[in-house]
Design a protein around this nucleic acid. Sequence first.
DNA 1: GCTTGTTCCATGCAGACGCATCGACCACCC
DNA 2: GGGTGGTCGATGCGTCTGCATGGAACAAGC
Lengths: 146, 146
Amino acid sequence: MAHLAVDAWESLLLAQVTLMKEFAEDFRGAPVSMQEYDVLYTLTGCPGGRTRLRDLSERVRLSQPGLSRLVERMEADGLVVRERDPQDGRGTLVGLTDRGRDAQRAVGRTHAGSIVARMTGALTAPEQAELARLCTKLRAPGTPTA
Amino acid sequence: MAHLAVDAWESLLLAQVTLMKEFAEDFRGAPVSMQEYDVLYTLTGCPGGRTRLRDLSERVRLSQPGLSRLVERMEADGLVVRERDPQDGRGTLVGLTDRGRDAQRAVGRTHAGSIVARMTGALTAPEQAELARLCTKLRAPGTPTA
DNA sequence: GCTTGTTCCATGCAGACGCATCGACCACCC
DNA sequence: GGGTGGTCGATGCGTCTGCATGGAACAAGC
């Protein structure tokens, strides 16, 4: 008797949990943790390999203070650099270093392999595309159902 | 040049992170945390409102030791009870108490409302159904793509 | 310019988490 | 029945996380 919407959310959540635990294997003994990889990967997709902390915060599975400290540690490890945003004195820009980019690539190779194997093993290509479409639409705000 | 499978996984992950942060609001000042609710909700769906710790562990966004301690705290709070599994001396059965069931219902009411509102606001009913189908298929193991 | 309200990031602190490991128990084999 | 390998859950330990808060920088109104 559970509502359709609740079923959908529960399925999404369970799928995420299940795959996440499988993918954790990719990071055993890796030079960066999953959280760190997440930051590095996200930066890879940003122009110039840098963004404001604020924008990272929305994408990462971490609270604002948690991200603040994670980035602090990553800077200490030479994976990223922090600097004041010249256009907004409140903001902090986080940028990839060469070392960070290398680390992302190194781990990313095997991780991407796992993802492709897992997804392709369970869903057809059109299904993968549809899943991506639905999840993207779900995340996008303010687009009410017709 | 990112692979289709990687796109799909990334979308799924981002949707989960985004909605999760929104839903966190439902638990501000609530008598149970989100993790605790997750356990209570899962137990609700189990026969007799009880399962083995092992089975919970697969559904919860927490490591095995983490769950072990969470349940320990929840027992101290009177939300669940633990007892040895008579059929497998290694296992521990976790069961809902009345207090736990009440807490789940209380928080669940508003939380379910948020879920329905958020999902329905972004996806049509058929889309929600398709999302549930895809996520369920994705999670299920060993069903190779035809 | 001053005040008020808001945004962005950092930090003190307590509690929670994960990794590695251990002890207890089951299952299978001989 | 004794031995071996595997599974289940608990605990020591160090680290990480979140909550609440603080201070600095923008924005708007007057």
